Simulated scan of single mutants.
Amino acid sequence: MTTAALSLPGLSVGTWTIDPTHSTVGFVVRHLVVSKVRGTFNDFTGAITVAEDGTLSVQAQIQVASIGTNNEQRDGHIKSADFFDVEHFPVATFVSTGVRAEGSNHVVEGEFTLHGITKPVELALDFAGVNPGMGNGPVAGFEATTTINRKDFGINIEMPLEGGGVVVGEKITINLEIEAGLTD
């Protein structure tokens, strides 16, 4: 574990709960080799906990069936056993194992579980700061990104193209834009 006390100005001790109304869990994947499909997961929860010694821990859950790509047919296929198999694997989770400074930014190390398989991932984290909020207490902003390979998580569908390549790329970029409020 590489967790160390971090200097994140204004981020006080306590639990910062993710506000799903003001946050986004998004992804980008190659389609037909030449373009990209973007989507979001619309049902998620999580928290960032700041301990007395300044160390951070993060945990989050995503309801995989909440996927949206602006195409109902595609969303239905992605929910099927060909991809996420939401009937058997309805939740994806992230639990941090450490946080380290990297230049002026940070890296959150953790265990990501998707499709019943858990793998280590690293999220490049940009801390946007803390704002007093609008009468309900302070809010903090974070942006994070990571790239995973869907095959590492047992999503092995190929769908090869006649001219080479596959319909859906293997690399998935996950983008998080998080607003969290101090709840205790």
Rank of each mutant, 00 (worst) to 15 (best):
N42F: 07
D43C: 14
F44Y: 12
T45S: 15
G46I: 05
A47L: 08
A47Y: 02
I48R: 10
I48H: 13
T49C: 07
T49P: 05
T49Y: 04
V50W: 05
V50G: 09
T55M: 11
L56S: 13
L56M: 09
L56N: 06
S57N: 11
Q59R: 14
Q59H: 14
A60M: 11
Q61T: 15
I62A: 12
I62M: 06
I62F: 08
Q63K: 14
Q63E: 15
A65M: 08
A65T: 09
S66E: 10
S66N: 12
S66F: 09
I67W: 10
G68C: 13
G68F: 12
T69N: 09
T69V: 10
T69C: 04
N71H: 11
N71Q: 10
E72I: 05
Q73V: 12
R74Q: 05
R74A: 07
D75N: 14
D75Y: 04
G76F: 08
I78P: 10
I78K: 01
I78C: 02
S80N: 02
S80C: 06
A81N: 02
A81T: 08
D82P: 01
D82L: 02
F84R: 07
F84P: 10
F84L: 01
D85V: 05
V86G: 05
E87Q: 13
E87C: 01
E87F: 00
F89M: 07
F89T: 08
P90W: 00
P90A: 04
V91Q: 11
A92M: 13
T93E: 08
T93W: 03
F94A: 04
V95T: 14
S96E: 06
S96F: 01
S96P: 02
S96T: 06
T97Y: 02
T97L: 06
T97N: 02
R100G: 05
E102N: 11
N105R: 11
V107E: 04
V108W: 00
G110A: 07
G110N: 08
G110P: 01
E111Y: 00
F112H: 04
T113F: 02
T113H: 03
L114V: 01
L114R: 03
H115N: 12
G116P: 06
G116A: 05
I117T: 12
I117G: 02
I117E: 12
K119P: 07
L123A: 06
L125K: 06
D126M: 09
A128V: 03
A128W: 03
G129F: 09
G129R: 12
